[in-house]
């Protein structure tokens, strides 16, 4: 881990209204290198808007937004629609983002097999990983992800968050993400910010999940959801969904998938 966690961006008492609707009320937060901050909250809580403010895509009414000068951001948007009239292979799409070793980046994201496919033809889950690879191409200091697990199945989600945490350790960048997948995300995050126009509560994941406001917003979620991700699997999947044995010599019985 980094000894000193450099501050990448801060918000101080940010307020924003769009039209007559108040979207963000008195939001303050801090993003540091090597730390994962996850924003959770109900639909319409202003999560994506908060992200856009931090990305510099949205100006605020009042408050202070500061970012490290020439901060390199790797951005994984919620979705983008690419005109089918543009012939664009996955490889070209990723290469456009930077000059890093593209083969290594694609290997890291587990998408080498998609290399020559048209970006418009791959599935939603695959596209999320392509976007992640594209963000990594930029050698980001800050990785920003807007609901990265959309269109990814439950086991894939766990693998994706694991991957993000692993990449963070490797590269030491800060991570900011918006997520719906509360229980999955709790495992791999340093700080959680629960948003509902204002900051309901924020802090360590364990503390936030005990907070009354959080419980009021999300309390009716079945606890069994959490159980899925705290029990120990007898095997793991890699990003392709292939079974990965922790002990390579151990013979693996493929019928023994005991989920949930």
């Amino acid at each position: 881990m980094q000894t000193s966690s450099r501050i990448l961006a801060t918000l101080k008492h940010v307020n924003l209204s769009l039209g007559r609707r108040e979207i963000l009320h008195d939001i303050s937060l801090e993003l540091s290198a090597g730390k994962v901050l996850t924003i959770i909250g109900p639909n319409g809580a202003g999560k994506s808007t908060l992200l856009r403010v931090l990305l510099g895509l949205q100006t605020v009414d009042s408050g202070e937004v500061t970012r490290l000068p020439s901060l390199r951001i790797g951005y994984v948007p919620q979705k983008i629609i690419i005109n089918p009239l543009m012939p664009l292979t996955v490889r070209c799409f990723i290469a456009l983002a930077g000059n890093k070793d593209i083969n290594k980046v694609m290997l890291d994201a587990g998408i080498q097999h998609l290399e020559n496919q048209a970006v418009q033809s791959i599935s939603g889950g695959e596209f999320q990983r392509v976007l992640l690879a594209r963000a990594l191409m930029r050698q980001p200091q800050l990785l920003v992800l807007d609901e990265p697990a959309q269109g990814v199945d439950m086991m894939g989600q766990a693998a994706l968050y694991e991957k993000i945490a692993q990449l963070k350790e490797q590269h030491g960048f800060g991570v900011l993400m918006v997520s719906h997948d509360l229980h999955v995300v709790m495992q791999k995050t340093d700080q959680v910010l629960c948003l509902n126009q204002h900051v309901c509560c924020s802090g360590l994941p364990e503390d936030v999940s005990q907070h009354p406001e959080y419980q009021r917003l999300f309390g009716d979620f079945p606890d069994s959801g959490l159980a899925v991700y705290t029990h120990h699997h007898d095997h793991q999947h890699d990003l392709h969904g292939n079974i990965v044995s922790e002990n390579p010599t151990q013979s693996h019985d493929k019928e023994c998938c005991k989920h949930g």
């Binding site: 990305l55 020439s70 951005y75 948007p77 983008i80 690419i82 005109n83 543009m86 664009l88 456009l96």
Partner: peptide
């Protein structure tokens, strides 16, 4: 052309 906001974020 791919995405204006993505381009903006990337400087």
């Amino acid at each position: 052309t791919i995405d204006e906001e993505l381009a903006k974020v990337e400087g």
